[in-house]
Design a protein around this nucleic acid. Structure first.
Lengths: 237, 237
DNA sequence: CCCATCAAGATTGCATACAATTTAGCCACG
DNA sequence: CGTGGCTAAATTGTATGCAATCTTGATGGG
């Protein structure tokens, strides 16, 4: 298990430690330090974060609600191993929700928010030009963060929560079924969306976003490959 | 606390008892045996279901992920008290998602499913004609179940989960801000949606559903009433 | 050599114990 | 009569213990 790498959030606060665990594990899953199928043993997670199994368990339960972790009774927690069908559902959901997010965000857009979005895109392109696995991870994270930032601007906490789940699950799906590395064209598409938003052209922004989602999904190899997946299901990890 | 009324699910099974608790409490919240603001003490919930606090706590945590329960650190769990703003977000989300649900369900519709939907509407109308609080609760439940049944037919487990959350939260919102009792016109509108679906007219079904959602929201009184809500926030039930 | 069986070890599900925090009641005081 | 503060009771946050279940690995038979 290789989560320890970056995980050392000393921000103690009297806050909920289960939340800290959830966030750290989610980050690890999203940027692929934890790969689908990995077993997440309660005592191991607890030891990593220096808490009891009780707290670790609560964090894992949270992740299972987001679909990032699969809880099997008497067997434990595993990083989710989404099927091709689940992958399709993730993207179908995004096609339904993200256009609405774009339109809502546009209504509430102002100079500050545009600046934030632009900064996010700069971050994206920075990592795009770097080499090495750390940069790759940061790139993946940044790419999803653009969508999340946009979602946070739609002024709807519920949709934002849904988007958080969908983006995280997308990352998992791409990790499993992605053909190329992350599409560098994704960055260009993000820029195009932002340009349309700045121009106040909601229709175009919405269409660009839809095409962007289509492109991401088109990059997946969702063949049935049942044999492989079945083996994974039994072997896990 | 008045949950005990109906709650006695002897279906033991070796299943997860936290799930049982979640479902029972959710039902109680949705059909208003538990009103917003009510404190849900861990030991009390545990005693009701004959489990330890550990399990009760897990059930409450699940409900908090669905937005039905608010968890306050060191203070406990309370039935959610959604603000008018949250209420608006619930319906904005539904307006975004349910049209997609309708269209997807239409694609996969067959005679069996139509029969199920029809039976659901019959259930609705039956309770509509009965008197008494029990019938009222059943009516509320049945009304939401129509939407959930439709969602289950869309063939997308993620959207279905989202809808479950949205419908439950809608019920909470209506309990708080509803002007009339449940709109009996809701039933007619459900019938109209089904008719359009049977006719294969997705556009019309989608528009009818949107209007239906608009009507539900229009029946709410989302004035600021800050005083009341503030008092509630401090007093809580 | 492969596979079934079974015991030992590991892990989970759950209850319980205890400290930390909050709430409630009470009394004194203004 | 209202108010502030203090103590006791109630409640939550978390760790830990034990039984039930699963996993692993060794052993023996086919």
């Amino acid at each position: 298990m290789n989560i320890k790498e970056d995980i050392s959030l000393p921000e103690s606060a009297t806050e909920d430690r289960a939340l800290t665990i959830r966030d750290a594990l989610r980050n690890a899953i999203v940027d692929r330090r934890l790969t689908p199928g990995t077993k997440l043993t309660e005592s191991e997670v607890g030891a990593l974060f220096d808490v009891s199994r009780t707290v670790a368990r609560a964090g894992l339960q949270m992740l299972s609600f987001e679909g990032l972790v699969r809880l099997e009774r008497n067997r434990g927690a595993f990083v989710s191993n989404p099927t091709p069908e689940e992958a399709r559902q993730v993207f179908a959901s995004r096609r339904l929700i993200e256009p609405g997010v774009v339109m809502s965000a546009l209504e509430r857009l102002d100079a500050d928010k545009i600046a934030l979005l632009r900064r996010q895109l700069e971050e994206e392109s920075r990592y795009l030009n770097e080499r090495g696995p750390t940069a790759r991870r940061a790139e993946i994270k940044a790419s999803g963060d653009f969508h999340l930032l946009l979602a946070s601007m739609a002024g709807n906490a519920i949709l934002e929560k849904f988007m958080e789940e969908l983006i995280a699950r997308s990352s998992l799906v791409i990790a499993l079924y992605g053909r190329s590395g992350i599409s560098s064209c994704g960055h260009n598409e993000h820029m195009a969306v932002l340009a349309a938003l700045e121009a106040g052209d909601g229709e175009r922004a919405r269409d660009l976003m839809l095409h962007h989602i289509d492109h991401i999904e088109a990059d997946l190899d969702l063949q049935v490959r049942d044999v492989t997946r079945l083996k994974d299901a039994l072997d896990l990890a």
